[in-house]
């Protein structure tokens, strides 16, 4: 029996929280999911097929090896304080999206690999708690290349400081601007290694779903930018 996955999103641009429900239905019959929509503003529905390869992104990317890789690339005085999160985001919602509209179509979905860091600051910055916090994003462009093979590249990076740095906002900016790019090359190498096991396969379709991409039952996702899955079809 085919399966319908129905997802509703908090925001009309398919970001924010999401809820998905997957139900089997008879061929040529009805499938339905009932929701209390509340504050949800967009929905997607997808008929799932047998033989899909579902790759939940966070478990694949949040590994000890990748954490060590990220930690080694952090600027001086910065410490990672969360695990690595990996989800989906349309290009239009990234920093570059509205500023470089020609780089990707606005609705192209990228993988948002992110984590938060604490940045220790000297006393004369007078930052509350003696430190500041920031979220660092590496955006991955995952697609099927001309030969229908799965490839991925680090497309761009972004950081946002989320707490006061006292009088040292510029210091924090310098450290992050000098340090974050250093994670690109090692991350790309890690991606290439991870994808090498797919190199002998070709696929016809690739798409994203919030959460872990399950095809049965309910999946509630706090933020699709932190949890998403890639689905590959042969």
């Amino acid at each position: 029996m085919p399966t319908l996955t129905s997802c509703i999103f908090e925001n009309s641009n398919f970001t924010g929280a999401a809820n998905c429900n997957s139900v089997q239905f008879p061929a040529n019959g009805w499938a339905w999911a009932t929701w209390t929509f509340g504050n949800r503003r967009a929905s997607l529905a997808r008929v799932r097929t047998d033989g899909e390869i579902v790759i939940a992104l966070t478990p694949v990317l949040d590994t000890g090896t990748n954490r060590a890789l990220i930690d080694a690339s952090l600027p001086d005085g910065a410490t990672r304080i969360t695990n690595i999160r990996a989800g989906m985001v349309p290009y239009s919602e990234t920093w570059l999206g509205p500023r470089q509209p020609g780089r990707h179509p606005a609705w192209r979905v990228l993988v948002d690999l992110s984590f938060r860091v604490r940045i220790d600051l000297p006393w004369y910055c007078f930052a509350p708690g003696g430190d500041s916090r920031a979220t660092i994003h590496y955006y991955l462009f995952v697609r099927l290349d001309g030969a229908r093979r799965l490839v991925a590249s680090v497309d761009h990076w972004e950081w946002e400081r989320t707490e006061s740095a006292g009088v040292c906002g510029d210091t924090v900016a310098d450290r992050l601007n000098n340090g974050v790019p250093g994670g690109v090359a090692p991350l790309q190498t890690a991606l290439n290694t991870a994808l090498s096991s797919f190199s002998s396969f070709t696929f016809s379709e690739i798409y994203f779903l919030p959460g872990d991409g399950r095809n049965a039952g309910r999946d509630d996702v706090g933020n699709v930018r932190n949890e998403a899955a890639i689905i590959l079809m042969r």
């Binding site: 398919f14 349309p90 179509p105 606005a106 609705w107 192209r108 979905v109 462009f141 995952v142 697609r143 099927l144 290349d145 001309g146 030969a147 229908r148 490839v151 590249s153 696929f203 016809s204 379709e205 690739i206 798409y207 994203f208």
Partner: peptide, 10 residues
């Protein structure tokens, strides 16, 4: 880059 398929919500 030569792209056969990328997922676009459009």
């Amino acid at each position: 880059p030569e792209v056969y398929r990328a997922y676009d919500l459009s």
